[in-house]
Design a protein around this nucleic acid. Structure first.
Length: 670
DNA sequence: ACTCTGCTAAACATAG
DNA sequence: CCTATGTTTAGCAGAG
């Protein structure tokens, strides 16, 4: 038990480095520095974004309420007018309605506030209603447009200033800022859409496509910002509710629950028009919704959902010869229906997941850079909007997408170290980076694609790489040649200079006691003695004082205990960080699993096909520890073995013993 | 300045 | 003899 918790704390130490973003606060010492920087960054970002947001002055909910109020007012006015037999000359609509109106005085005298829309409908004749609606529609649209225009101006202003400021900052920072702004923009669009929906819902706006394309055409379409999902689906369930309550009491609360259901109809409108690439105000904003999306071929005459001659609608891939055909296809196959909306929804989730991922990774990068003192690394606002979205992400147990987006996220950009370490080339003595390799499997897992393709020297020591290679296999043993293969398979860098690094590998295998050569039937294989490996690690863990401290304190109680904890820390933590786990959505469900897998450090990398079922995990782990017990190198264990022995079993408990039993026979084979 | 660690190079040994 | 595999030594460099 105690061990468990202890290992937890240890685990947190490396995490301070690796998962800086989230756990920054954890690490003390130097790690703490990085963490502090990271958090500071986040905070600043939040501020900035908050500022951007607050520029709106009105929250979506507020705006909606305001509009509802307006609608009510108009309605009241209308009723009053009708009741008093006055028809306002300025109101062209009133012409038709005036004659038809026979509003019971009793009703008219009722305070209009008491009227629900339904009541109004009962009271008013269709023509009257229509007139009313049109009137309101016009009014609201005007208001909306004014509001959004203002918003956009502000946004653009901000964007400009930010871009200028951003020039001195790292590209990615700028990119992120832009992203933030794009998101804001999208958010705005979403807002508009949402309002439209609300109007629609309230029956205040009829949504004939034709009509919608009229004055409303600038409102919805294209990008549905995932960030707004919650909003969208929650209806106006925004934080500030007081106004809403009052509105509801006034009777116009059609929205409430219905919202959730109806709002769903929103996205669909997205599909039909292809001409709408302009932004809300018709301004050809610089910020195209998905300007740097994968579809670079997005030429003027193209459609975001059309590329390489096929429909890019998720899961569609229908071939279309030309744009026209595609559009036809789009309108027929992906019209506004349940399926399309559902797909749209899923896509939103996907995007949202990606954005969350991006935010996390960015944050981590910042923290890493800060920690490395690579740059001033001012706090970047970028992560902010995403952060918000992340916070909101699944507010109300919305259908978490079947993790659709979850797993596939494979960051393909250079690992944390940034350009500095990328000068790979020559006799890179990037040992320093070894600090960061503590959670090697995590780092590897996350950037595995990157290393695989980029000719960049991995920031890991040969020893750790070899270990990783070995541990990745089901039986945690490899021949020299297999190790070579692993290197070349996993790292583009090791496809060159073979003589050099192979020599180094051999050298390391021989040199380090942690690598144990085991004679096999068909030759010799190499295994890892975790205990030895961990034993020599502590001094290296400069990056995480916490860990070192723990190790030291642990040593005082029992050397092995500490090293064992360290082993635990290293072997288990990375898994929590493995790509799949990064997704908040899936994390919760996966975590338990990962915990089980703790024993299999190699796990994260699927490449090897290794991995035996999870059940192996506990055994696996002890297995590693157990390796030392191999008869082959009994000599090594002798010294530390006995002394360390006692504490060890106590921690691992029976598992280890069991493993011993399992292992020994196998080993004795040789 | 010293030590530790890691990398590279190279010499050497051994087995197939 | 050649090659693959291991072992060992030496020098250099970065970091604490």
């Amino acid at each position: 038990m105690m061990v468990e918790s202890a290992s937890e704390t240890i685990r947190s130490a490396p995490s301070g480095q690796n998962g800086v973003g989230s756990l920054s606060g954890q690490a003390d010492g130097s790690g703490g520095g990085a963490g502090a920087a990271g958090t500071a960054g986040g905070g600043a970002g939040r501020d900035t974004a908050a500022g951007a947001d607050s520029n709106g002055e009105m929250s979506p909910a507020d705006l909606l309420h305001f509009q509802q109020q307006q609608a009510l007012q108009v309605a009241r006015q209308f009723l009053l007018q009708q009741a008093s037999g006055l028809s306002s000359p300025g109101n062209n609509d009133s012409k038709q309605s005036a004659s038809a109106v026979q509003v019971p005085v009793s009703v008219a005298m009722m305070s209009p506030q008491m009227l629900t829309p339904q009541q109004m409908q009962q009271i008013l004749s269709p023509p009257q209603l229509q007139a009313l609606l049109q009137q309101q529609q016009a009014l609201m649209l005007q208001q909306l447009q004014e509001y959004y225009k203002k918003q956009q101006e502000q946004l653009h202003l901000q964007l400009l200033t930010q871009q200028q400021a951003g020039k001195q900052q790292p590209k990615e920072a700028l990119g992120n800022k832009q992203l933030a702004f794009q998101q804001q923009l999208l958010q705005m669009q979403q807002l508009q859409q949402q309002h439209l929906l609300n109007l629609q819902r309230q029956g205040l706006v009829s949504l004939q496509p034709s009509q919608a394309s009229g004055p409303l055409q600038t409102l919805p379409q294209a990008a549905v910002c995932p960030t707004d999902l919650p909003q969208l689906w929650k209806g106006e369930g925004a934080p500030g509710q007081p106004a809403e309550d009052s509105v509801k009491q006034e009777g116009l609360d059609l929205t409430g629950t219905a919202t959730t259901a109806t709002s769903f109809a929103a996205p669909p409108k997205v599909s039909p028009p292809l001409s709408h690439h302009t932004l809300p105000n018709g301004q050809p904003t610089v910020l195209t919704p998905r300007r740097d999306s994968s579809s670079h071929e997005e030429t003027p005459g193209s459609h975001p959902l059309y590329g390489h001659g096929e429909c890019k609608w998720p899961g569609c891939e229908t071939l279309c010869e030309d744009l026209g055909q595609f559009i036809k296809h789009l309108n027929t196959e992906h019209a506004l229906d349940d399926r399309s909306t559902a797909q749209c929804r899923v896509q939103m989730q996907v995007v949202q997941q990606l954005e969350i991922q991006l935010a996390k990774e960015s944050e981590r990068l910042q923290a890493m850079m800060a920690h490395l003192h690579m740059r001033p690394s001012e706090p970047k606002p970028f992560s902010q909007p995403v952060t918000i979205s992340a916070a909101d992400s699944f507010p109300d147990g919305l259908v978490h997408p079947p993790t659709s987006a979850a797993a596939p996220v494979t960051p393909l950009r250079p690992p944390g170290l940034g350009s500095a370490s990328l000068h790979s080339g020559g006799p890179a003595r990037r040992r320093s980076s070894d600090k960061f390799c503590s959670p090697i499997s995590s780092e590897l897992a996350q950037n595995h694609e990157f290393y695989k393709n980029a000719d960049v020297r991995p920031p890991f020591t040969y020893a750790s790489l070899i270990r990783q290679a070995i541990l990745e296999t089901p039986d945690r043993q490899l021949t020299l040649n297999e190790i070579y293969n692993w290197f070349t398979r996993m790292f583009a860098y090791f496809r060159r200079n073979t003589a050099t690094w192979k020599n180094a590998v051999r050298h390391n295998l021989s040199l380090h006691k942690c690598f144990v050569r085991v004679e096999n039937v068909k030759g010799a294989v190499w295994t890892v003695d975790e205990r030895e490996y961990q034993k020599r690690r502590p001094p290296k863990m400069t990056g995480s004082p916490t860990l070192v401290k723990n190790m030291i304190s642990g040593l005082s109680y029992g050397a092995l205990n500490a090293s064992y904890q360290a082993a635990l820390a290293e072997s288990s933590f990375p898994l929590l960080n493995s790509p799949g786990m990064l997704n908040p959505g899936s994390a919760s469900s996966l975590l338990p699993l990962s915990h089980d897998d703790v024993g299999a450090p190699g796990e994260p990398l699927p490449s090897n096909g290794s991995s035996s079922p999870p059940r192996l995990s506990p055994p696996q782990y002890s297995h590693q520890v157990q390796v030392k017990e191999e008869p082959a190198e009994a000599e090594e264990d002798r010294r530390p073995g006995p002394a360390l022995g006692p504490p060890n079993p106590s921690t691992t408990g029976p598992a280890e013993d069991r493993d011993l039993e399992e292992e020994l026979p196998g080993e004795e084979l040789s």
